[in-house]
């Protein structure tokens, strides 16, 4: 019963945080609310006996990834955007209608289906008997899931190389997104000074 209560609390916080993320105009506020949401999700992982994932959620997501975001947010001067319109004018209303309807549909489907367990036997008790969540998960990761694991490392490597390439400063004179439109051209040095 206590678990259910905790789940409701975590879930409510997570949803509230998420709503905050998409409504705040200040990016830094949004970022902090996102961290808050992730921590609550980590709490739900904990409730589900996924200890390792809960830790990873906080370390990698709330830690590494969001720190990266914070770094870039600070790197760029974003204050000027706060004065601008934050929402699409027409699209806003489409979304206000569409998102609740989608949500209702998903909830309808999810609740209409009777979920039954496959029952593979890895109950929390069994896992605890075998040495705990981290140990069993690790064992599976390095045996059954070894190939995907290696591929994941490759994806990270490619992501890293790609990020470096994309973010590297070009040393051209002026950069035109649309080559035919001269007004669109921006001198690189000018941007660099600003960035």
């Amino acid at each position: 019963m206590a678990e259910k209560l905790l789940f409701i609390v975590f879930a409510a916080f997570a949803v509230a945080g998420a709503l905050g993320v998409i409504t705040r105009s200040n990016v830094v506020h949004g970022l902090i609310l996102l961290v808050f949401t992730f921590i609550n999700v980590a709490g739900i992982f904990l409730l589900t006996q996924a200890h390792f994932l809960a830790v990873i959620q906080i370390l990698v997501y709330a830690g590494a990834i969001l720190v990266l975001f914070a770094f870039v947010v600070m790197f760029l001067n974003l204050r000027e955007f706060q004065q601008e319109e934050q929402f699409h004018r027409g699209q806003k209303w489409a979304v206000v209608v569409l998102a609740p309807v989608m949500l209702a549909e998903i909830v309808f489907v999810v609740t209409a289906v009777t979920w039954s367990s496959v029952g593979d036997g890895f109950t929390p008790e069994a896992i605890a008997a075998q040495g705990g969540n981290v140990m069993v998960l690790g064992e599976q990761l390095f045996t059954k899931m070894l190939l995907p694991f290696e591929i994941a490392s490759l994806i990270l490597l490619v992501g890293m190389v790609g990020a470096i390439l994309l973010a590297a400063k070009e040393d051209g004179e002026s950069v035109c997104l649309r080559e035919w439109d001269d007004d669109d051209c921006v001198s690189a040095s000018l941007v660099e000074r600003e960035v």
Binding site: V21, I22, R24, S25, V27, G30, L31, F69, V73, L78, F81, E84, E85, Q86, F87, H88, Q91, K92, A94, V95, V96, L98, A99
Partner: peptide
């Protein structure tokens, strides 16, 4: 994703 203009959000 659908309604915010700020790329970060």
């Amino acid at each position: 994703v659908l309604m915010r203009r700020n790329l970060f959000i």
